[in-house]
Write a protein that binds this DNA or RNA. Structure first.
Lengths: 128, 128
DNA sequence: CTTGACCTTCCCGTCACGGGAACCCTTATG
DNA sequence: CATAAGGGTTCCCGTGACGGGAAGGTCAAG
């Protein structure tokens, strides 16, 4: 099948698929006209990548996960380690954002939000 | 004062300050030797920017906030609107990350993490 | 006079694509 | 048969907010 059908079935835009080929995540065949030809296996790998990306794994983590996926002799410990490190990174991001959220909630709560210039938000940002 | 002292006092690296000048967030003077000269006001604006960035505001939001900060006739409603929109964006990011976190927690919990190849994480990613 | 610590500009790399140009291939239709 | 639509291809630029590093000018101290 061509790239747009593969994209529909894997849930990825064609641009993304071309990019994944460029960086070596997939290797679709080529027809005599130069068009990429995707096998069922290619679509399966693409869908795998789409789900891994949806969980926030970076490209290099996806590459490692895909290699483990194809390796019958893998140790699940290797997979788990990657997932746990990623989980920790996500939890750190959440903690950072939650701090911002709490401050912003407090500041917006305290701000009248009317026509007057007095504003606790700007006071906080401009605090010496 | 020169850029490194301004950076120390505002808590920003010199590279960042040069970037802020390049995109027009600040306009420090110049000495006869071509060095940037920072006033107390410059340092104050830089510190303002540093705090706004620490709350996750984007550069253009910082530009708008800085303009409102310098405007004696501002309406606090304008500031509040920017902050509330940003707050919503942050809450959306947190929700997205929390979803990933929950899935990853469940998957890593279910994974034995030993030498065997059987792995719920890869099963999930490869699910048809 | 030289050393070393500053400062300057300029350019490349980040991360994972998206937009768009310029051009080729295939299929359907008048 | 000519053409138009709707695929596909490569290539290049832009994103956000800087960081790293090169090449070179400036300044204070020993």
């Amino acid at each position: 099948m061509n790239i747009s059908e593969a994209g529909e079935r894997a849930g990825l835009p064609a641009k993304t698929i071309r990019y994944y080929e460029e960086i070596g995540l997939i290797r679709p065949g080529r027809g005599p006209n130069g068009y990429r030809r995707f096998s069922e296996g290619d679509v399966h790998r693409l869908a795998f990548l789409g789900r891994a990306r949806a969980l926030g794994f970076g490209i290099e983590e996806c590459r490692a996960l895909l290699a483990l996926y194809s390796d019958e002799d893998r140790a699940s410990a290797d997979v788990k380690r990657i997932a746990e490190e990623h989980l920790e990174a996500i939890e750190a991001k959440i903690a950072l954002l939650a701090g911002m959220r709490d401050t912003l909630r407090e500041l917006t709560r305290a701000c009248a939000g009317d026509a007057r210039p007095d504003c606790p938000i700007l006071r906080d940002l401009g605090a010496d």
